[in-house]
Amino acid sequence: MENLRILVVEDEPTMRELLKDMLHQTGATLVVECEDAASARTQFQNEAFHIVMLDLGLPDMDGHELMQEFKQINEQQHIVLVTADDSIDSIQRAISAGANGYVVKPYSKEKILDVVNNYVMMHGGQEDALRGFSRR
């Protein structure tokens, strides 16, 4: 899982740090952290990421709306929503809106590893998945 680039958008510092640590344990080489939609938008427009881990409850925007913005920029972007809401309605809404996955807090190492493994299985070589998506 070398060269895996992940954007983490999570407003809670403790959860963001936990998620970053778990992602590094999976072999991700670059994990960029953002605490709100505004900073995430800037990072997303300037860098290419294999996976975006996106919290639904951001202070400045709903995570569903931000996911739609990201999908308009790159409809193939692999986005996994993270939230404390484990209702069937929320999960169905996320998947039907284009999310590639849904992780309920609190995070477990196994679930985060599943997210990364799912991406790798879907996309094979990570380098190929980013080809053509450079935003610089």
Rank of each mutant, 00 (worst) to 15 (best):
N3H: 14
N3A: 11
R5E: 12
I6F: 00
I6N: 00
E12D: 14
P13S: 10
T14C: 01
T14H: 03
M15E: 12
M15C: 08
M15T: 14
M15Q: 14
L18Y: 06
L18S: 12
L19T: 11
L19M: 13
K20H: 10
D21E: 13
M22D: 00
H24E: 14
H24A: 10
Q25D: 13
G27Y: 05
A28E: 09
T29Q: 14
V31G: 04
C34L: 07
E35K: 13
A38G: 01
S39A: 14
S39H: 14
A40E: 04
R41L: 09
R41Q: 11
T42M: 06
Q43S: 12
F44N: 00
F44A: 07
F44Q: 00
F44I: 02
E47V: 02
E47A: 07
E47T: 05
E47R: 08
F49P: 01
I51K: 02
V52L: 02
V52Y: 00
L54P: 00
L56Q: 08
D62W: 01
G63T: 01
E65D: 12
L66H: 00
Q68E: 11
Q68R: 13
F70E: 06
E75A: 13
E75Y: 09
Q76W: 08
Q76V: 09
Q76S: 13
Q77F: 10
Q77V: 08
I79S: 03
L81D: 04
V82S: 13
V82Q: 12
T83C: 13
A84E: 09
D85V: 09
D85A: 08
S87V: 08
S87G: 11
D89C: 03
S90I: 02
Q92M: 10
Q92K: 13
R93C: 04
A94T: 09
I95L: 15
I95T: 07
S96M: 05
A97G: 04
G98W: 06
A99K: 00
A99Y: 00
G101D: 05
G101Q: 07
G101L: 07
Y102V: 05
V103L: 15
V103S: 01
K105T: 10
K105E: 07
Y107R: 03
Y107A: 15
Y107F: 15
S108R: 12
S108A: 10
K111C: 06
I112P: 04
I112V: 15
I112W: 05
I112Q: 06
D114F: 04
V116R: 05
N117L: 14
N118L: 13
N118H: 14
Y119K: 13
Y119V: 14
Y119A: 14
M121Y: 03
M121E: 13
M121C: 05
H123N: 15
G124D: 07
G124Y: 09
Q126F: 03
Q126Y: 09
E127C: 01
A129C: 10
L130P: 06
F133H: 14
F133Y: 14
S134V: 13
R135W: 04
